[in-house]
């Protein structure tokens, strides 16, 4: 039977913020914002340092997709596992990894989180169960089934979260893993970050089915999509999936619809041959960071002074990370052979 609400109650209901059912404190909401901002500023600075040749090789920025990583990772517990792909700086920061270790890794220094041996695509922190970035598209997806299997076997209630891009969903091993996860009822959540382009190839040119999450229907797996430009929606969708994984050990496949504002890597322009300037500008209107800031300001959860203070604080953190990376020593030559085997 429907609950009958009085006029007063209805008004109160309508005025409730959209996250009122999620049990998020104001401090958490502010923290969501702050983490997204840290990623944005960190990545902007990484681009600058790349331009100065302090960072070499390949470097894929997370700018534009911050709401996905922050919302999803905020839905986890500390003992949950995370796997990332090659666009992994943002995930590492969202998990609370030290920006100094991440920047130093980008600089190829021995103080980096992978001792300078990995680079941009190999962020890692065992103490945070952050099981790494992986540079082969889709190649890490089965590892997530493995940790999920391991924790279930060991009687723990940890959940594994696995990020990958939509291009990875065309790899055979993605399908192998979804089948395995569904068959073995593994506590794993697959989060596909659909930013519309696999390098320069649009979804429409690469996928027979454009609703990427529907690929999980072949495995009768719980599935859905969410607005990846909205940190609350990201949190909501992933939290629900994580709870299901934890309580009933069932996998979920989620598609985050998002967009990257920079090129695929540092070597290609923001727009050009595969997407237009107009398209990028249009997408920037849904930038997850100002969008969320406005909402928090409007709701009185954040003040402009607090935003300004936060900017200053993050600027200092990023400066410190760059300074640390710059001043850190190079990995010594004898180091090369040290860790090939245990």
């Amino acid at each position: 039977m429907a609950t009958v609400l009085s006029m007063k109650e209805k008004t109160k209901e309508a005025r409730k913020p959209r996250w009122s059912d999620l049990g998020l404190s104001s401090a958490r909401l502010v923290d969501f914002y702050k983490r997204m901002l840290l990623i944005r500023r960190f990545e902007e600075r990484a681009a600058q340092e790349y331009g100065k040749s302090k960072i070499g090789g390949f470097c894929h920025l997370y700018i534009g997709q911050e709401a996905v990583g922050v919302g999803a990772i905020e839905a986890l517990r500390e003992d949950d596992y995370i796997f990332s792909a090659y666009r992994d700086h943002g995930h590492a920061l969202a998990r609370g990894m030290d920006p100094k270790g991440i920047m130093a890794e980008l600089f190829g220094k021995v103080t980096g989180c992978s001792k300078g041996m990995g680079g941009s695509m190999h962020m890692f922190d065992a103490s945070k169960n952050f099981m790494g970035g992986y540079g082969i598209v889709g190649g890490h997806v089965p590892l997530a089934a493995g940790t999920a299997f391991g924790t279930k076997y060991l009687g723990k209630d940890s959940v594994t979260l696995c990020f990958f891009g939509e291009a990875a969903a065309n790899q055979g091993v993605f399908h192998e893993t979804l089948n395995l996860a569904a068959l073995w009822k593994l506590p794993v959540v697959f989060v596909c970050e659909n930013n519309r382009y696999g390098m320069g190839t649009a979804v429409e040119r690469a996928h027979a089915v454009w609703d990427i999450y529907q690929k999980a229907s072949a495995y009768d797996m719980a599935r859905g999509w969410f607005d990846g430009m909205d940190v609350i929606e990201s949190y909501r969708a992933v939290k629900e999936a994580v709870d299901r994984a934890r309580t009933s050990s069932e996998p979920t496949m989620l598609e985050a619809r998002t967009y990257r504002f920079r090129g695929h890597s540092m070597s290609d322009p923001i727009h050009g041959h595969y997407r237009t300037k107009e398209e990028v500008e249009e997408q920037k209107k849904s930038d997850p960071i100002p969008r969320f800031a406005e909402e928090l300001l409007r709701g009185g959860i954040l003040t402009q002074t607090a935003v300004d203070d936060m900017e200053a604080e993050i600027k200092a953190v990023v400066n410190e990370a760059v300074e640390f990376a710059d001043q850190s020593p190079e990995p010594p030559a004898e180091f090369l052979h040290e860790n090939v085997y245990v």
């Binding site: 596992y81 099981m131 190649g139 890490h140 997806v141 089965p142 590892l143 997530a144 089934a145 493995g146 940790t147 999920a148 299997f149 391991g150 924790t151 076997y153 060991l154 594994t160 055979g172 091993v173 192998e176 893993t177 089948n179 395995l180």
Partner: peptide, 17 residues
């Protein structure tokens, strides 16, 4: 599915198995 078998083995090893 050999890729899934070996990949899941890597993941399980990472989780202490």
């Amino acid at each position: 599915a050999e890729s899934a078998i070996l990949g899941a083995s890597v993941g399980a090893a990472l989780a202490g198995m």
